[in-house]
């Protein structure tokens, strides 16, 4: 696959049908919209090297409660926009008065983006078996632009990590990652995730990460 670093305004193609994410079309030509890495497949897309997380419907995110209002929890989701978790989206039926018993300010949750309206009102839900309040494990934060690399093509990286690290991992598209396992495994897991963030734009990363984990395990004996 052909990859290249581009800046905003770089000409990518003369074929408008190839315009993918992070590009724009002007006068029948495709240009880059972002400073990032362009990958030339059927479609040309540009993945940014930095930037803020913009919530999209269906994304898994990790949020931290920052305020409680009548029937809504307001969550910081590492984005310019706050997430709203309505009381009816809590897996259990609870009373308005009891909201802070289940989720107080500072609590972390694994949630899914249910809806985003044009005014960027972000509605979250906890109604799924994989979602819920975080009670154990640890959360690390990386740049959301590195999340696709952490997941890998067709989930290759993340499934390898879960197996090799012996941990349960939940990846929030907003760059927050929950890891749960025994203490030693979690230490290594956090180190590995931060390594992937640093080296996200290099080739042959999955194989190097496998080696890294094996080395670390061997060193510990």
């Amino acid at each position: 696959m052909d990859r290249k670093i581009v800046i905003p305004g770089d000409l990518l193609s003369e074929d408008t049908r190839r315009a993918g994410e992070g590009t724009y079309v002007r006068n029948g030509k495709v240009y880059s919209l972002l400073y990032g890495i362009a990958s030339f497949r059927d479609k040309i897309s540009v993945i940014p090297l930095a930037g803020k997380y913009l919530p999209a419907v269906g994304d898994n995110v990790i949020g931290v409660v920052k305020d409680i209002t009548f029937s809504n929890w307001i969550l910081d989701i590492n984005s310019p926009y706050d997430g709203l978790l309505h009381i009816s989206e809590f897996p259990k039926k609870i009373d308005v008065e009891d909201m802070s018993k289940y989720l107080r300010i500072g609590s972390s949750v694994m949630a899914r983006v249910k809806d985003v309206d044009p005014a960027m009102k972000v509605e979250l839900t906890l109604n799924d078996r994989r979602l819920g309040v975080i009670k154990t494990g640890r959360v690390v934060e990386i740049s959301h632009t590195r999340v696709p690399r952490l997941i890998g093509k067709g989930g290759s990286m993340i499934s390898m990590l879960k197996k090799e690290l012996n941990c349960n991992i939940f990846v929030g598209q907003n760059g927050r990652i929950w890891v749960s396992g025994n203490e030693e495994d979690m230490d290594l897991a956090l180190k590995t995730i931060l390594l992937i963030e640093r080296e996200a734009h290099t080739n042959g990363l999955t194989d190097r990460i496998v080696e890294y984990i094996k080395d670390a395990r061997r060193a510990r004996g």
């Binding site: 800046i7 905003p8 305004g9 992070g22 724009y24 002007r26 240009y31 919209l33 972002l34 400073y35 990032g36 940014p48 090297l49 930095a50 930037g51 803020k52 632009t145």
Partner: peptide
């Protein structure tokens, strides 16, 4: 602005 990852038509 480019470094901040903000979408722009050009520099």
């Amino acid at each position: 602005l480019a470094d901040a990852g903000i979408p722009m038509r050009s520099l």
